[in-house]
């Protein structure tokens, strides 16, 4: 049953990164567009994301719940030492969510739209950066686990873990991944004229992802970050990362031929491959502290808890997944039907 729980944990994480990532990315693409294109993108984003955007963000709640139920010790370290970046992520999620709804559901479309728009765009960029920084902090080796909070300074305990170069680059890398996902997704939804905008955006995003990925690895390598050393030395991780890089070629061809389904599959696959590569390099020691590595399996809850959690997840999955699939499918099918 432990593997069922781990499967749902990884599955939720992948879905969150791909679906919510595309969602964050849409705001980033909008942020880096000219004023005219911002309005076009705003409409497209609403049409594409509208029906599913709230569902996209529930995955993070599922992740939190699985962690605190199944892996309480692991969760405990995250909420203790990464309190500040997680709070900033929350602030971003809140502002972004309300801005999205306000700008589409305000009865009057007047000057207040400008405020909602900027709130949406900026929080769309800042939130994934802090999310990425939180991921980065887990593996940057700067967390100091202690029971004696008086002996260390506030900075060492609660700021140094995430406020470092490596975490920051991981944050930027994650934001770039989001923009990449979104721009490719938007290509398929735009009309002939607008398509050119997103093709250009997706090229820029692809290049940014590659550069930042390189920066993360080389920065970590120079500073001898444990994770990067593990990553480079792990044959599976390197193979998957290389595979993800190779997928760029068929992806570009697929974009040129305007193949909606294959384009999206390649993009999603690339992001999933990168994530799995990172997970494989470190599994099961998903937290690296300044002194040791902490395995997620060390802190697993008792068998009875895992059993009930697994069963709940299976039942939940049986209810949610067909619903989600149907939602994605019906709105897409309706669109095709209308055309």
């Amino acid at each position: 049953m432990l593997y069922v729980v781990l499967f749902f944990l990884v599955f939720s994480l992948l879905l969150y990164v791909v679906l919510a990532g595309a969602d964050f990315g849409a705001g980033i693409v909008e942020l880096f567009s000219s004023e005219k294109n911002q309005q076009i993108t705003k409409k497209t984003v609403y049409r594409v994301m509208g029906p599913v955007w709230e569902a996209n963000h529930i995955w993070i709640i599922i992740i939190m719940v699985i962690l605190w139920v199944g892996f309480p010790g692991f969760y405990n370290i995250l909420v203790l030492y990464l309190h500040i970046p997680l709070t900033l992520v929350l602030l971003g999620i809140t502002l972004r969510g309300v801005a999205f709804v306000f700008r589409h559901y305000d009865a009057y479309k007047d000057k207040s739209q400008i405020l909602y728009d900027w709130m949406f765009r900026i929080s769309s960029l800042v939130t994934p950066i802090f999310l990425g920084m939180t991921f980065g902090a887990m593996i940057s080796g700067n967390i100091t686990v202690t029971d004696n909070y008086e002996t260390l300074s506030f900075y060492d305990l609660f700021i140094a873990p995430w406020c470092n170069g490596f975490s920051f680059f991981v944050g930027l890398f994650f934001a770039a991944l989001c923009a990449f996902l979104a721009s490719v997704l938007l290509i398929g939804e735009a009309n002939e004229v607008e398509r050119a905008i997103y093709v250009k955006k997706s090229r820029i995003a692809t290049i940014t992802v590659i550069i930042l990925g390189f920066v993360v690895l080389s920065y970590g390598y120079i500073n001898e970050t444990t994770f990067v050393i593990h990553f480079i030395k792990n044959p599976y991780a390197i193979t998957l990362a290389a595979l993800s890089a190779l997928l760029i070629l068929p992806l570009l061809r697929s974009i040129r031929r305007a193949r909606k389904v294959t384009t999206r599959t390649f993009t999603g696959l690339q992001v999933v491959l990168i994530l799995i590569a990172a997970l494989i390099a470190q599994y099961p020691n998903l937290i690296i502290t300044s002194e040791s590595e902490i395995s997620i399996l060390e802190t697993v809850a008792t068998d009875s808890v895992i059993k009930v959690l697994g069963i709940t997840l299976i039942i939940g999955g049986l209810v949610i997944l067909p619903g989600l699939f149907h939602l994605l499918k019906s709105f897409k099918m309706i669109k095709i039907f209308e055309q």
Partner: peptide, 13 residues
């Protein structure tokens, strides 16, 4: 967390 995880995970669903 592990004890009251069930209402929370069902609530998530």
């Amino acid at each position: 967390g592990p004890i009251i995880g069930m209402p929370f995970s069902l609530e998530g669903a």
